[in-house]
Design a binder for these strands. Sequence first.
DNA 1: GGGTGCATGTAATGGGTTACATGATTCT
DNA 2: AGAATCATGTAACCCATTACATGCACCC
Lengths: 193, 193
Amino acid sequence: MEVLLGLLAIEPMSGYDLGLNIRASVGHFWNESYGQIYPNLKRLAAGGLVTSRTERQKHKPDRHIYSITRKGRERLAKWLAIPPQPEIPRNELLLKLFFGEQVPAEILIEYVEQMAEENRAVLKLLERAEREVIDKNERYPGATYWRMAAHFGQMEMRAHLLWAEETLAELHKVAGRVRGGSTAHKEKRHADK
Amino acid sequence: MEVLLGLLAIEPMSGYDLGLNIRASVGHFWNESYGQIYPNLKRLAAGGLVTSRTERQKHKPDRHIYSITRKGRERLAKWLAIPPQPEIPRNELLLKLFFGEQVPAEILIEYVEQMAEENRAVLKLLERAEREVIDKNERYPGATYWRMAAHFGQMEMRAHLLWAEETLAELHKVAGRVRGGSTAHKEKRHADK
DNA sequence: GGGTGCATGTAATGGGTTACATGATTCT
DNA sequence: AGAATCATGTAACCCATTACATGCACCC
């Protein structure tokens, strides 16, 4: 809801563009689907927080360009002044790892490697995003804040990658132990292979 | 849903206990409210994945102790074998920071400091949790995995704290610039102290 | 001819939190 | 006296994703 106001405060655009922009700019820490964007824009318009004008296009559907109003900016400022409440994240990988003893270590290794790969990709994106902001947009005052947000993601990704390395080493030890016989407290007599 | 199975696979307990255990063990990366736990336990029981026995208590409401069944363990294993899909986190702090130019830097500083404080507290909890697992529970095979999950949180918290330091320094610069007049991108004539 | 991109929207469905209701006990 | 803890559960509500529907244009 407020993402829409925030982005429209930077420049007017259509619902479709908002979707693209969300994915490209704040996508690493905030998502909003079209099933939410369009109804919310209607609600915002009904409340007088945004206005819309229709732009006709040849051979393409009309675009509805939304602009933020003074009232909308006030609402945005009010929302920004509310201290953010800490999120309660949900990390399925960690949950599965937590129950890891129920499952062969090999598949956990796969999960962690998969995660590391994704993290490396995101890290690259964030680094590229930062460079682009610096190159093209340093004059825009918001750029400072965009960099801060991007940096957050970068540091998190690097921390995850470190963790992944450490964890993979441990998981390989566990996997080796099972394969090599001599199990924990009791015998379990390997049946693998 | 599956957290319940996972925890019941470790030991039988009541819905109430499940709530406490979730908060204490996986709470840093997974939450489940009672409004969800109780109905889900019913569903699990209806599906034959858990069984319940009632334990009467004097002067206290009855406790319904749930145990996982063989079928439940199979379901759990099946779920664990599904690769976790990367979560799309929502970070309100970052979103507000992203729109930071709309708002005096002082309040952003407050937000980041607040976050850092919470992170330090969580970090301490996680470190204590790890020590306790090592001390008391090292013989339990699940302990290895619990440590891995706790470590993840620790490394993330440390990364956040580093970021907070860096970001606070930058925010103080911005705040100083505004207070000291001379707005734009050019000279910045320190006003701090 | 079939997929992808532009561009809008609605409806079904699911997931989850919050608030409510009950009732005894123990702590402050 | 009042709050908190134990212990269960239901109902209202909110939020969000997914799937569906439309329709033209462009590319392979």
